[in-house]
Design a protein around this nucleic acid. Structure first.
Lengths: 206, 206
DNA sequence: CGAGGTAAATTAACGGTGTTAAGTAAGTGA
DNA sequence: TCACTTACTTAACACCGTTAATTTACCTCG
């Protein structure tokens, strides 16, 4: 009978096509500069069709960002699985995070630099499924390993993790929004942040 | 004759009234949720009147943010003028920066978390008049003092300053956009960031 | 085959946005 | 008094996200 299945497959296909078209425009011009009508034009459907697949523009955006962040999770998984010095692993993970943000500035901006509207369910974004939280969990595991290996003077893994996250987020977001600032060099600032924070955690119980 | 002067004064007055009304709405509801029409309603003028005083919505926003950031500059001036341990001064300055951001989340967001449209003159935002750059200059001076006093292993003042800025920006912006995240405590994270970074600069030549 | 039902997609419309062009009313200077 | 300037408003344009009503296309069943 497979008709239902085929329909469902086609439906998934168009959904993906919408996401791809939107994502492309979105990467090129930024979320707020891409209208539903333009996305619709691109896939040669009427604008309202999109609403059959996504509740609204925000949900479309969120789906696209989730898809992208899945790739970050993959990268972090690989890094975490490698054996060796936990400090080096931590540093590599932090670097991967920043690089990912710079490679996907619009997705990064939507996910981490845009406040959620008051009406949304904030619980949802703190649950383990949320891509951001998953990425943060990797960080926490790295930090635990460092503390367990006696590399850090600091013993508060949670505080250390949150500090590290805020640090790499700081560089990432500033490099994205203020790319014209006379940075001493993108790579240098990234390295500067990671090395300084790690050195601080090694040196002092904050 | 003084007519011209009186007119100019009145004109300045309405300009300020527009800025005040806009700023108030803007603080309450965020820039993107406040329309020119609503601002106009508030001051009981027609929407187009605003365009006699500001080129567009972006310029109005920019003027408001500049006005607010002048206050930060004031605070930082006071801190910089105090004698004592340069490290303590640096830490107090960094803390003032974060606190200012959290007190003025919408202004902070507009100034530091929103990318400038491609068409604007980026030069303008790197010039010494720009509020952001002025604030950064304070930071740089603090860092110079620390290096001069032999407190830092690091000798690259520019890199250290940029790293510190990125760090405090990271906490500030994350606390603004992700206030629902299970932080170990806002004050703790802020302190964690400042202490860790400073400890890192003291301990290592990054 | 043909009727009926259903899912998918469309058209038309609503109420909003930032912004511009054209028009008006008041006050100034000769 | 009359022309000119200044301050402001009205009307309109071209867009936006989104909803409701409607059409089209297809599948199922008698």
């Amino acid at each position: 009978m497979g008709v239902r299945e085929r329909r469902a497959r086609e439906k998934r296909y168009l959904r993906q096509e919408i996401m791809d078209a939107a994502s492309e425009l979105f990467v090129k011009e930024g979320f707020e500069n891409v209208s539903m009508r333009r996305i619709a034009d691109r896939i040669e459907y009427s604008p309202t069709t999109i609403y059959l697949y996504f509740k609204d523009k925000a949900e479309l955006l969120e789906s696209i960002c989730q898809e992208t962040f899945a790739k970050l999770i993959q990268r972090l998984t690989k890094i975490l699985d490698q054996p060796g010095d936990p400090i080096e692993r931590l540093k590599r993970g932090l670097l991967a995070y920043v690089e990912f943000g710079l490679e996907n500035p619009h997705h990064y901006r939507s996910t981490f630099m845009t406040p959620l509207p008051d009406e949304v369910d904030h619980e949802k974004y703190v649950k383990p499924e949320a891509a951001g939280i998953q990425a943060f969990d990797f960080l926490r595991r790295c930090v635990y390993d460092c503390i367990a290996a006696g590399k850090f003077k600091t013993k508060d893994a949670e505080l250390a993790s949150q500090t590290l996250w805020a640090g790499v987020h700081g560089v990432t977001s500033l490099l994205i929004t203020h790319s014209h600032f006379p940075w001493v060099g993108k790579e240098q600032v990234i390295r500067g942040m990671i090395n300084t924070l790690v050195a601080g955690l090694e040196a002092e119980n904050i």
